[in-house]
Design a binder for these strands. Structure first.
Lengths: 244, 244
DNA sequence: CGCCTAGTTGAGGTAAGTCAATTCACGTGG
DNA sequence: CCACGTGAATTGACTTACCTCAACTAGGCG
């Protein structure tokens, strides 16, 4: 049961560190408590001192920051297998908020459990460090997109990246993926207005590159799209465990 | 000797995890090899498979990504005490380049040493994970700035953050700091053109908020500046070791 | 002296924002 | 069953923040 559900996390960490039976069982006991959250109500508030992180089992979430002027910047979306609020527990305070995009299921990981697991099985710490690095690489790519790509390239690149991440956990392919995001959410993630998001999506559709419609993203011409967006899929690929 | 030089790193890690004598000595033996690099020539190239990371002892560096169209986005600047290329070794390939801004001094940390140190002293792994999280928090703040702040706020916020980071290692204060960056580098970091950077700096100067001149940033009115930039200095502060 | 790099300023163009109106799908209650 | 409200998507007209191109100044150095 539990084994099946935490698979996405195990698969992710296992890609970096070949996990022993003991490590797998530590990982397993680490998150037992099961919780659900409904769409829209924050899991974590900016400024809150946090003692628990979560692993996302099903559904989508997003992490974001609010500015004084009321604007919102979405930093990243989380999909099944991703950590929620890992940085919050480590820094002991949350510098951002996390909200479910859909109804979600999570398992809870508290700080003592996490640190205890690290002490008993150091390789697990390395695996988590690796996972955190990978998340950071994604944020960096997002930063580059916002800083130096125009709206259309940014959108294309963003959806391609999301597609790749989903494909890694079996939820998408080069043909497309199910996508619960609204154009408003996309706007807040890409640093655009929702009006402009709509126009850009139309452009991409009219060029025959992709369609965004009824909760589904369809890549109509994956090759041309990656070229248009200057998308390099290799940076997400992990060839194999580097720690045998 | 060596003790004095690695102080910034020790101070940083020590803020999170109270390090024992043994851990300090492991940390010390971890980076012996000393190297220098001259301004402008890359330490790490995008796409390179990397086996070594560095700790910056003196000088400034920057990490950046190049796009297909030739534009550059600087992701972050590194100052003394920061890691260079930590993510590159962990992911086993570099997704970005690193260049010295000034001539720099570094000590080298290779992957086997690092992983060995983690195995022997797990708490060190946690400390490094914490440091990586802190770096990520900074990248996130940068992302938010580029996505949702206008050029002047973005510039003000960025310089305030840099000032805070420098203050943590004794290289700056609320009065200002020495700053080897050119307006071109600022432009590539903030996602602006160098022309616009110049205009924005003039605005801020004429408002009596700050001056950027002759390699020095002067905060003329720190209070008004933090308000203008919506800058929250607390997110960088670490109250004390959370792991006794 | 002359070149090179960093900085400064002006004029005009453009990508993206704002405001506003309209449609559509949907739930919900009278 | 229909009237109504609400939230998402769509499109048009106008505004604006920032860009590009271009000219010019000032310092450092062979």
């Amino acid at each position: 049961m539990t084994i099946i559900e935490i698979k996405p996390l195990v698969r992710k960490l296992g890609a970096f560190v070949a996990l022993s039976a003991k490590e797998l069982s530590v990982l397993d006991t680490m998150h037992q408590r099961r919780r659900t959250f409904v769409a829209g109500r924050d899991l974590v508030h900016q400024g809150q001192t946090e003692q628990a992180a979560y692993v996302l089992i099903s559904g989508w979430a997003c992490s974001y920051k609010l500015l004084a002027n009321g604007e919102r910047q979405i930093v990243d979306f989380q999909i099944p297998g991703d950590f929620l609020g890992l940085r919050s527990v480590l820094l002991h305070i949350s510098d951002h908020s996390i909200a479910p995009v859909t109804d979600i299921e999570v398992t809870e990981v508290n700080l003592p459990d996490l640190l205890g697991a690290f002490d008993r099985t150091p390789r697990l710490a390395i695996a988590v460090l690796w996972a955190a690095s990978r998340d950071e690489a994604m944020v960096v790519e997002h930063l580059v997109g916002i800083g130096r790509r125009d709206a259309a390239e940014r959108m294309a690149h963003f959806l391609l990246e999301l597609g790749s991440r989903l494909a890694l956990v079996g939820l998408g392919s080069k043909a497309g993926f199910g996508c619960p995001l609204t154009q408003y959410l996309l706007a807040d993630a890409l640093g655009l207005s929702s009006v402009h998001v709509n126009r850009v999506l139309r452009q991409l559709r009219e060029k025959g590159l992709l369609r965004f419609r009824d909760g589904h993203v369809t890549f109509d011409n994956y090759g041309k799209l990656t070229e248009f967006a200057d998308f390099d899929p290799t940076y997400l690929d992990q060839v194999g465990p580097i720690l045998a």
